[in-house]
Design a protein around this nucleic acid. Structure first.
Length: 465
RNA sequence: GUCCCCAUCGUCUAGAGGCCUAGGACACCACCCUUUCAAGGUGGCGACACGGGUUCGAAUCCCGUUGGGGACGCCA
């Protein structure tokens, strides 16, 4: 049997991090089994769905590298099929017409609440003669759920979960306006799409019991279910939009690489012994539902950053240079100097060693793109005191005629320091401050080599005494 | 309120009854390396929520308590 999974977001906003993990696990599972990974947009709620949100979700998935098979399916486009199934259920006697008005239902809920009873549909029309209904009155179709016994779900992650049927009321399948509810639509679509494994958030676990009853009513085999525990915020609270849940685009903007986010998300709830660095190819080879944990996890930016640092060090210099150039105008507040792209490309090997995000990287690279004279930060200013400036002046003269390579420059500066009885650091730091405007930078001789003779000497003379 | 799920260092986790004096990673601290900052290396700090069982033996199994989360819509 070919494995078919799906990711089924509702287009009411961006692709948030929890959804991204759900999508990742579905994708990984299908790829591991050589199966298919489908996309379905749950847009039956027309009022809350938007094209822009669909776009944002698709973009988010693409950026994350989770390519889906085939075209995304619009759930709304299948509304007639959903209605057809509701009618079939009606014909089989597994559903019935309910003429209650929304007002009556609200009243019913409030009464239950006031009396401290469980909020459930009381089954007003379950066994009532439809002939009692006012002529031409609108009606919804409800599932005639079993009232005795229990409904059992064998969840691949949560294990066997069961609930007494008396807990479940008769849910609406088809609204009075003829549109399907989510409960009906998911079941019909998952069935028709041939989904073999439904991997989704834990918040759907209790829904599964009711969906199970629809499968049973239609005599369909239900897919296997696997419910992922939710991701919480750093404070342990639910990661909701109100609590600052972010779309994957926000993570991109914060300078994280998609492969780092994939690795991070993978380890949130899934493990393979003590392994931490798990590139995607390896993840596909290893992934399985047996190793998914059951407890909820909190989101930890520090760990993401650490992983991101790792993947940046592995990343191709050319690619990183391009990403940095994209961000540079914002960092500089101006267009980069001519030649900046080339310098940054050449300096990337050392730059990427010392950054955790692309934001760090762009900031660290900025000195390659700034115009003279450089603005010095506080630490650089402190290094370039009276003595520091004198050192810079003298060393400028000492290296002016040197061969312009990192090795030759280092030899020249070391020689200079030795003749003055200075430690290398006492010379290198003032140079660094003058050349980069900062107290911290990639190895200074490499920086000088990349900057070139003219620019380097110019920057030195800008602060010279 | 009712039902469902969860519970190992601050965080992510390993752990399938003896291999556990509970391992790894992130973060933090110290040291080493070093032209700075990183990276890297070494070491340190740090957890089985609580209470009962079961068992020769429990982080692992059972029950309860507590705590956290989720679901109870003509939303998805």
């Amino acid at each position: 049997m070919t494995v078919v999974t799906r990711f089924a977001p509702s287009p009411t906003g961006f692709l948030h991090i929890g959804g991204a993990r759900t999508a990742l696990f579905n994708w990984l599972f299908s790829r591991h089994h050589g199966g298919r990974f489908l996309l379905r947009i749950e847009d039956t709620d027309r009022a809350r769905s938007s094209e822009a949100a669909v776009r944002a979700i698709l973009d988010g998935l693409s950026w994350l590298g989770l390519e889906w098979d085939g075209e995304p399916l619009s759930q709304f486009s299948r509304r007639e099929r959903h209605a057809e199934v509701a009618q079939a259920l009606l014909a089989k006697g597994h559903a019935y017409r309910c003429y209650c008005t929304p007002e009556e239902l609200t009243a019913m809920r409030e009464r239950a609440l006031a009396e401290g009873r469980t909020i459930r549909y009381e089954g007003t029309w379950r066994d009532r003669d439809p002939g009692d209904a006012p002529k031409g009155a609108p009606y919804a179709i409800r599932l005639r759920a079993p009232t005795e016994g229990e409904t059992v779900v064998d969840d691949l992650i949560q294990g066997q979960v069961r609930v007494g049927n008396e807990q479940l009321d008769d849910m609406i399948l088809l609204r009075a306006d003829g549109t399907p509810t989510y409960m009906l639509a998911v079941v019909v679509d998952d069935h028709d799409m041939g989904i073999t494994h439904v991997i989704r958030g834990d918040d759907h676990l209790t829904n599964t019991f009711r969906q199970r009853q629809i499968y049973d009513g239609m005599g369909w085999d239900a897919p296997a279910f696997a419910h992922l525990s939710l991701i919480h915020g750093p404070d342990g609270a639910k990661l909701s939009k109100r609590h600052g849940a972010l779309g994957v685009d926000a993570y991109r903007d914060m300078g994280y690489l998609p492969e780092a986010l994939r690795n991070y998300l993978l380890r949130l709830g899934w493990s393979h012994g003590d392994d931490e660095i798990i590139p995607t190819e390896q993840a596909i080879a290893w992934f399985g539902l047996e190793n998914v944990g059951r407890s909820p996890a909190r989101f930890d930016f520090d760990k993401l950053a650490s992983l991101n640092g790792h993947y940046m060090r592995q990343a191709d210099d050319e690619r990183l240079a391009t990403l940095v150039m994209d961000r540079l105008p914002a960092v500089l507040g101006a267009a980069p100097e001519a030649g900046a792209a080339e310098r940054i490309r050449r300096g990337m090997g050392h730059l990427k060693e010392r950054a955790k995000t692309l934001i760090d990287l762009a900031e660290a690279a900025a000195f390659y793109a700034r115009p003279r004279p450089l603005t010095l930060n506080d630490k650089a200013l402190k290094i370039l005191d009276e003595a520091g400036r004198r050192t810079v002046t003298e060393v400028g003269g000492a290296i002016a005629a040197a061969e312009w390579t990192a090795e030759a420059l280092e030899a020249a500066v070391r020689g200079f320091a030795e003749t003055r009885g200075l430690k290398l650091g006492a010379v290198a730091q003032p140079i660094r401050a003058a050349v980069t405007g900062s107290n911290a930078s990639p190895p200074i001789f490499d920086v000088m080599a990349i900057l070139g003779r003219e620019e380097t000497l110019g920057r030195l003379s800008d602060v010279a005494k």
